[in-house]
Simulated scan of single mutants.
Amino acid sequence: MNVSLVSIVIPFKNTVHYLKDCLDSILAQTYQNWEVIAINDHSTDNSLVLVNSYAEKDNRIKVFANTGQGIIPALQLAYSKSSGNFITRMDSDDIMQPNRLKVMVESLLQYGKGNVSVGQVRYFSDRGISDGYSRYEKWLNGLTELGTNYAEIYKECVIPSPCWMVYREDFDICGGFQSNRYPEDYDLTFRFYQHNLKIIPCNEVLLLWRDYDTRTSRTHEHYAQNYFLDIKLHYFLHLDYNEKRPLVIWGAGFKGKKIAKGLIEKNIDFFWLCDNPKKIDKKIYGQELHHFSKLESLTNPQSLITVANTSAQSDIKEYLKSLHHQQALDYFFFC
């Protein structure tokens, strides 16, 4: 194992239009001790031809065919072929800023093992960025600047899949790419959290994140909303749920119903709160909905907040603060 080598794992499938920008951005890195492990996930365009042309010119780029189907088997194969002391992932349609690897390696050397180096991101697109992605970028970068990403881990994935780096030893402790749970980037983030890897704050944009209609996260079923809710509930019950405390769901929309159904299937009792007069005192899945003031009669509850409206979230947060409830201990935003 090369102690200063960065292994960059890149699964690719039918991204020939973007691969040149991706690979050129790696070649232009100010930190040059890297290897690319590129896995062709059964491309039907000229992606493989393009990557092979780069590999022929630079022996740091190694190309293999996915022996399975999909991103997770591709990542697993890539990691098995890697030899660096530092591990990072890159997506084949994105662009590294020239100092991305240098900043991340230096951060890990400074802070040592037990840490995750992350970077801020900037979305770009030929058609412009939607308000939703713009808000996500601002939210994510705000967390990354302070290194407080885990504080809101149940909202969305708080570590961008193409912009993290860890020591190989820490990666192995967290189970690496061994998990078969989708979304795979969110699952890995939860395992970093589970094993208490600290987030190193970063105030620099290190990745340009491309958005387009056929991007995998937009089109593949594994990145649909129900998968995100399943993974949130799975890890909450394993990592933060205290069965000795009353469990509370806020909100009876799609997400609230999905979480409630998951708890019912696991035979976990909970209280269900909302502020909609049409729903209060009614039953969904046999579970009665209560006015949110019900919370004050419960002893030391834990709240899962599935209300999506940002104004309502702020109101709920202020209300919980007035009860001296702490975020990431007594209440968790699930959206």
Rank of each mutant, 00 (worst) to 15 (best):
I26Y: 08
K138Y: 14
L289R: 08
Y136N: 08
Q32T: 13
A260I: 05
H42M: 04
S25H: 11
I280M: 08
G176Q: 02
R218G: 05
K113W: 02
S107C: 05
K257A: 11
T299H: 08
Y285A: 14
K321T: 13
E265L: 14
Y182D: 06
H324S: 15
I284M: 14
Q32P: 01
K255T: 14
D187L: 03
V158E: 05
N115V: 03
T214W: 10
G119E: 10
D213R: 15
F332R: 02
G147A: 05
K232T: 02
M104Y: 07
G175V: 10
S43K: 03
T306C: 15
E137G: 05
F86P: 00
E56K: 14
V63S: 08
N180S: 08
G175M: 05
V36H: 00
G128V: 12
D269L: 08
F334Y: 12
K232Y: 10
L108M: 03
I173W: 06
E296D: 09
P277G: 06
L143G: 07
D187Y: 04
F192K: 00
Y31D: 10
Y54F: 15
G128M: 09
L206E: 11
Y182C: 06
N14E: 11
E221C: 10
R135L: 13
E152I: 02
E56C: 08
F86G: 00
K261T: 15
I159R: 00
S83F: 12
T148I: 09
N196Y: 13
Q302E: 09
E106A: 12
P183W: 03
I10H: 01
I129R: 14
E169N: 13
T88Y: 01
G147V: 01
D21P: 00
H234F: 11
Y136D: 11
L140P: 07
V49N: 12
R135A: 14
R218W: 04
T88K: 03
I95Y: 05
M1Y: 08
L233A: 07
N276P: 02
V3Y: 09
T189I: 00
Q120Y: 09
E145C: 10
W272P: 02
Q32M: 10
S53C: 06
S82E: 04
I153C: 03
W209M: 06
I37W: 06
K20I: 08
V36S: 01
K81G: 04
T310F: 15
S83R: 13
D315C: 09
H324I: 09
E221Y: 10
V9P: 00
Q29V: 06
N85T: 04
C202L: 07
G262F: 12
D269E: 12
R122N: 10
S80T: 08
N52F: 02
L140H: 11
F292H: 14
V158T: 09
T88A: 02
S130G: 09
K113E: 14
F192Y: 14
E184H: 09
Y285G: 08
L23H: 00
V307E: 10
